[in-house]
Design a protein around this nucleic acid. Structure first.
Lengths: 250, 250
DNA sequence: CTGGACCTTCTCGTTACGTCAACTTCTAGC
DNA sequence: GCTAGAAGTTGACGTAACGAGAAGGTCCAG
């Protein structure tokens, strides 16, 4: 009925978590309605990752299961945070081993070198001369950054792209709620350097796949990311910024 | 030297992960420089959560440790994502058990009921009559939301506050990089309803502690959060939006 | 009577060691 | 040379939550 193996039920009997209402002379275990209800609660808590011993104490003592859940939640959060750190370290290690650290370290969102001029020319060619002027306002912001702040911004940008890559590779749609939440950070990252409104941000999607340097930088992190990211940018512009795309693909 | 117990070294010897360069007739294990180097690599990978068996294969085969790391990373990410889901479920359960679901469900960022008018009057009293007019633009946005979108926005807002609460309770400073990253989402959540510039967002910090309804709503999630969140808002306005506070506490 | 499905108990294996217990070896001090 | 203590050794058991398999008993349909 429950999908559990008999072995599991026997284990629960052994540790006293769920005992049969009676055990026949032939050794067969018989369970009643009450045991089924208890089992449901066990399965629910087990789903949440609560250890069996604690489940037993919660169900038996019944004294403040909420407090126990809160403690359990704190454990989960600590565990998740540790995983976040480890993932970041693994990322740095992989970047080190593949020797791609310096490239993205220096010029991510900010792009300080010659590539930046290329990007500006590309933007002006695509969206008109006025668009390129925003680079001045970006410089006004980044010009006051320290080296440390530059690197933090770059690291943050890479972390974001990796999380988006995680979402893509796990089959999440670029217009799903979870991805749009992540894209909030992306939009803000862009806006930090460039006062992009909904239309400008929507147009930026073309750069991600069309501009060779931008595309290469993103492909370094995930070769399949650029078109997916472009979709996510457009979805964010429409769904969260209220952009209304022109008909006919303008 | 390494801080490991002898038991651990013996275990590594047993499973063939790190064998002594020679074992004396009295049974003592002797390690050399090479073993120390190998141990360093073992400890590093162990720190990343790689299982010992896999560490052995990576170090011995030496064939494409990067690919192994990438696979390991995928496991970590999957694990983290599962934890995220579980944490969200635990949160919903706790909210259910404490019966606080409806309250925040209906009026989070959006505030649809009578409280909303109170908030508007409070804002106009604090920042002048013009400030309250932005409610109209917010209504233009939220007015087109479906019930489902309303609830999604509310859920997203609560999730954000919980993550901020996690950061606070783990002793993270409100102006740390990690928190400012989270605050990006907060700023966007506010901006979705209200075209707040750096100064307006900075001023919003007072509402979080000063407006009774806002404060109560946040305290429901974490009683200690409001002042900390106010600090985080101000830090974000200054550090990420370039707001320059007036001297003398204006 | 028989085959097959289903139940039982018992035991080992999984991870990465901690924690005894019982014993030997080395070293410093008298 | 004797001895106390520190440090090493080899087992063996315990951890969480069962899975897998062996060896055997029970039930039911044909």
């Amino acid at each position: 009925m429950s999908g559990l193996t008999s072995r599991t039920l026997r284990h629960y009997d052994d540790i006293g978590l769920l005992c049969p209402v009676r055990t026949a002379s032939n050794g067969y275990r018989w369970y009643g309605r009450r045991e089924l209800l208890r089992l449901q609660r066990i399965l629910f808590l087990r789903e949440l990752g609560v250890p069996l011993g604690q489940i037993g104490r919660i169900l038996d003592g019944d004294r403040d299961g909420v407090a126990a859940l809160r403690r359990h939640r704190a454990d989960l959060v600590a565990h998740r945070d540790r995983l976040e750190e480890i993932i970041a370290t693994v990322d740095r290690t992989i970047a080190d081993l593949t020797g791609q650290a310096h490239l993205s370290e220096e010029e991510f969102f900010t792009g300080l070198s010659a590539r930046r001029d290329d990007l500006r020319r590309d933007i002006e060619a695509r969206y008109g001369a006025g668009a390129g002027e925003h680079f001045a306002s970006a410089d006004a912001v980044t010009g006051r950054w320290t080296r440390e702040e530059h690197e933090q911004a770059a690291a943050q940008g890479r972390r974001l792209l990796r999380r988006l890559s995680d979402a893509r590779s796990s089959g999440t749609a670029p217009d799903s709620a979870a991805v749009l939440d992540l894209m909030t950070a992306h939009y803000q990252g862009v806006r930090l350097l460039w006062p992009a409104d909904a239309a400008a941000y929507h147009a930026l999607a073309d750069l991600v796949t069309g501009n060779p340097d931008q595309r290469a930088m993103i492909e370094e992190i995930d070769p399949l990311l650029p078109p997916w990211l472009a979709d996510a940018i457009r979805a964010y512009a429409v769904r969260r910024l209220g952009y209304v795309p022109a008909r006919g693909g303008g």
